[in-house]
């Protein structure tokens, strides 16, 4: 995202969110890849979980969740318990974690992203897929008939990692949602 601001000379800054007060300074939040169990625990322990939930219900925060972040945005997670992953439940989607398998099955591939004129190379790492979307959700990309990108209101859920590739179109798409 920092690269996007630099290359397109767009005004904006990127902040690392670690403690509750950090969140007051931002209009949008990116929950990046990582382990959904780990991120979820960190959010709950730091109290950020409640702060983010409040911002969601006040409708003052746009969120992009990639991979683990996609899991954390989902209302329903099919393959695990609430003890393992406490979700923000921002989007009416159902997500299955590690849907393609373990790291051995991780891959990169091109896909068609809604509104993009050329194919987009997406990197899937122990990636989740979106198994169901609610009525208010728009499906943005599919891979092998599986939903890998969806949007609801100002929330964007992605199975793959735009942060690992140089293509900035998804970043741009998200910025337009803020």
């Amino acid at each position: 995202m920092m690269r996007f601001f630099k290359e397109t000379k767009t005004k904006g800054s990127v902040n690392l969110i670690r403690q509750k007060p950090d969140l007051d300074k931002v209009d949008a939040l990116i929950i990046p890849g990582g382990e959904s169990t780990t991120i979820s625990r960190t959010l709950v322990r730091s109290g950020l979980f409640e702060t983010i939930r409040n911002r969601i219900s006040d409708d003052t925060l746009a969120i992009m969740g990639t991979c683990a972040g996609c899991v954390l945005l989902a209302k329903t997670i099919t393959d695990t318990t609430k003890e393992r992953v406490t979700s923000l439940e921002a989007m009416d989607i159902e997500v299955q974690r590690n849907a393609f398998g373990r790291q051995k099955e991780s891959f990169e591939h091109t896909l068609n992203f809604h509104g993009f004129s050329n194919p987009y190379t997406a990197v899937f790492i122990r990636a989740p897929v979106i198994t169901k979307v609610g009525r208010d959700c728009e499906v943005l990309a599919k891979f092998d008939k599986k939903i890998v990108a969806a949007r609801q209101h100002r929330f964007l859920a992605l199975s793959f990692h735009p942060e690992l590739t140089t293509d900035l179109r998804v970043h741009e798409y998200f910025l337009e949602m803020i």
Binding site: G33, G34, E35, A68, Q103, S106, F107, V123, R126, L164
Partner: peptide, 9 residues
């Protein structure tokens, strides 16, 4: 990319 990406996570 996929290997180093995993490590980045």
């Amino acid at each position: 990319l996929v290997k180093r990406g995993f490590a980045k996570m």
